[in-house]
Amino acid sequence: MTSASKTSWSVANAKARFSELIDKAKSEGPQTVTRNGKPTVMLVSVEEWEKRTAPKGTLLEFLQNSPLRGADLDLRRLADQPRDIEL
């Protein structure tokens, strides 16, 4: 894999070329850092993080689009008395 399209970095390489790693995350998207050959962490730009974690609509819209909307749910509370507990 050439440096121009690199998306996976060893910890040692990420440390040695951290500025480049940041630039790649901003310009090319998420970058994976591996430890012992296994993916360990992902570096993403702030813009990418905000895009992926932004709320998708309001709570009202979520509830209105729920597959349970209109379902015949029994939401009555039980009238049972609490049990006695010895302390």
Rank of each mutant, 00 (worst) to 15 (best):
V44I: 15
R77V: 07
E50F: 09
M1T: 11
V33L: 08
I22Y: 02
L68W: 09
P39V: 06
T53G: 00
R76S: 14
Q31F: 03
V41Q: 09
L59R: 05
F62G: 05
N65K: 15
E47I: 05
F18S: 11
V33Q: 04
V11G: 04
E28P: 02
S10N: 10
K15S: 11
L59D: 02
K56M: 02
N36E: 13
L78F: 05
Q31N: 07
L63H: 00
T7V: 11
R76H: 12
F18D: 05
E20I: 04
S27P: 03
V44Y: 00
M1V: 12
P67R: 12
L59M: 09
K24A: 14
R77H: 11
P39W: 06
I22M: 10
E86H: 08
T7E: 09
E20L: 06
P39K: 14
E20D: 12
L73C: 07
T53H: 11
P39F: 05
S66D: 12
L75W: 06
F62Q: 07
K24C: 05
P82G: 06
R77L: 14
D72H: 10
N65L: 02
L21Y: 00
L63W: 04
T34K: 14
V46F: 10
S45E: 03
G70H: 09
K38F: 05
K26M: 04
M1I: 07
L78T: 14
K56Q: 13
I85G: 03
A25R: 00
R83T: 05
W49D: 04
D72E: 14
T53Y: 08
D72W: 00
M1A: 14
E86L: 09
I85F: 03
N13W: 03
L87W: 05
V46Q: 13
T2P: 10
T32Q: 10
K24I: 00
E61G: 02
P30K: 11
S27H: 11
D80L: 11
S66I: 01
R35G: 01
D72V: 08
R17D: 12
L78M: 10
T32V: 15
A25P: 02
V33W: 01
G29P: 02
L43A: 14
E47H: 11
L68Y: 15
N36G: 07
E61C: 03
D84W: 06
M1F: 09
E50P: 04
R17M: 07
F18K: 10
S66V: 05
V33R: 06
V33G: 03
A79Q: 13
S19T: 14
N65Q: 15
S19Y: 04
R83S: 09
L78Y: 05
R77G: 06
L78A: 13
R52A: 11
R77Y: 12
R76N: 15
P39C: 06
Q64Y: 02
E47V: 10
R83M: 02
S19E: 13
Q64V: 04
D72N: 14
A79Y: 06
E20R: 08
D84N: 11
K56C: 02
K15D: 10
V41S: 10
V44D: 01
A79L: 12
N13S: 15
L60C: 02
S45G: 07
D84A: 13
S3R: 14
R35C: 08
A4L: 10
A16W: 02
G70D: 08
L73A: 13
Q81Y: 08
K15H: 13
L21S: 05
L78G: 12
F62V: 03
P82I: 01
L63V: 00
D23F: 06
S10G: 13
I85Y: 03
